[in-house]
Design a protein around this nucleic acid. Sequence first.
RNA 1: GGGGCUGUAGCUCAGCUGGUUAGAGUGCCGGUCUGUCACACCGGAGGCCGCGGGUUCGAGUCCCGUCAGCCCCGCCA
Length: 581
Amino acid sequence: MVGTLRREDVPGTERLVGWVHRRRDLGGLLFVDLRDRSGVVQVSFGPEWSDGESLERARHLGSEDVISVEGEVVLRPEAARNPELATGDVELKARHLELLNPAVTPAIPVFRGPSEELPSEELRLRHRHLDLRRSELQGNLRLRHRLILAVRNYMDGLGFLEIETPILTKPTPEGARDYLVPSRVHPGEFYALPQSPQLYKQVLMTAGYDRYFQIARCFRDEDLRADRQPEFTQIDVEASFIQPDDLFGWVEGLMSTLAVVGEVDAPTPFPRMRYTEAMDRYGSDRPDLRWELEISDWTGALGTADSELLRGAVATGGRLRGLRLPGGGTLSRKEVEGLEVVAKAAGAPGLLWAKRTAEGGSGPLARWMEPEHWSATGAAEGDLLVVAAGPDRVTSPALAAVRAAVIRALKLPKVRAHAWLWVLEFPLFLEEGGRLFPGHHPFVLPHPEDVGRIEGEPTSVRSLAYDLVYNGAEFGSGSIRIHDAGLQRRVLRRLGMADEDIDRKFGFLLEALASGAPPHGGIALGMDRIVKDFVGAPSLRDVIAFPKTTAARALFEGAPTPASPSDLAELRLDVRVGRSE
RNA sequence: GGGGCUGUAGCUCAGCUGGUUAGAGUGCCGGUCUGUCACACCGGAGGCCGCGGGUUCGAGUCCCGUCAGCCCCGCCA
């Protein structure tokens, strides 16, 4: 291939095919950079070694023309070598050129010079065939391929079977919105695309396939983010007769295998932290431990301050928590107020702050700060304190957002480049508006010590659910599952479902559990995010060949589109648009 | 559903407190050039200023709406 030519190939005759990357016409001499997915090599044309017709054709080559050139591989003159190019010592002296397929002038350039901006995201997606020709994206997709291959080899080595599960499946009763697919055979009835193979893999466990995995496509009809696509790929894993430690060992082994491929560090075992501790120290269930900065609890330290706001927050059951930022005094008032904006955007009513200065202190909080308050927080001269007052459910997200912002603003040094973490014991239930929701999903096994509190104190029940976190991103989420039909029913009832609903929606699962389901558990790892973070891409769109926009459109092929009247008639569907109900 | 940013030549962008003929780089077309590699140099073509409405003597610029892309909140069991 063109990118693999080296001085060892001199002398030799080659016929190379590829795309015209760039052309430099010096008059008598003419150079073409020929590109394929292996790289670029320089092809030279000149009257002494190129036939006349080929030379004339070469003069009119345009970017992205597909050509075939045949000639001698030669060492370039000493002064004309290009150390920036892997093939820079050699070139192909073209005897003959064939134009295999001329290309129209590309709508977006494939070649990009140093310091040239990428075309807009919209155009890159619209002309995806051109964008995908760039070496960055080709490199990303090549790494993705190698990671998937490594997953399959590793899981196979542990005795896991890859088993495919349906894409046309049953709507999920809770959770994300489903993509629905109408049934022609059963008018008015719909399949759903799977949000994950969750129930199928549990059924596979009951069927005795005690080690299952799948590179599984999943679909969720929810609004998108840079790290969320409506269809995405999970490494789905489930195994029987296991404890969390078994799974952690396998996943740590898998991740260090992938890390070698992706050239990142993944020293095992990964540290572990309980959910409550993560929320307490970092305000997040997926803390980014590349930085050490932690949240402090100053309820005792500042609760005595003569401030109505502070005392009020404590009196109503809240806490005073904040961050001590050594050297944060260098931030301007405007920058600190920017942190307050961040806190408000994350849902906090406000953010108090004080700088400790030689004269005492400055900032809205400073007037309440007596010497004992300063010392109780450990603030030294030049430090900045930011404090959020209120219930943890409000202050945690705010302080997590402020922590991230302040790390950026102060350019705090990383203490490690790759931070892996298991977060354990997620709550089984979350409460919102007086209603209970599953913390993870309704099939998670309650912590054995907490089962007795399911009815009485549901929000205090821990679960055997765990997340794998890398650099503050959720890489995977899993749990030990309920294998007892009675306990499963108990949990579903506690979530507010009536028995007939349970039987209708989950009857097949309960029946399977009751028919000899082994204890089992598993995890689902986000393949796209793994690739994204390993290559350092800013968006999932850079590691998916044909991604959707934030509005879930496919710009290249133009999906979705209205269905034709005949299709709708066959499906017996009526469409009403432009009417909001 | 909400908030923010962006939309000007094929592409990347500039365009001031509203002012008369909308610019640059690159790409494209033509020309010169035998060692270039973001080749260089000379010349040329290329514009629904996203779309619709409004304010104004006058709108790329201000206002309202709308569409598209991106980022965030909600949402994502």
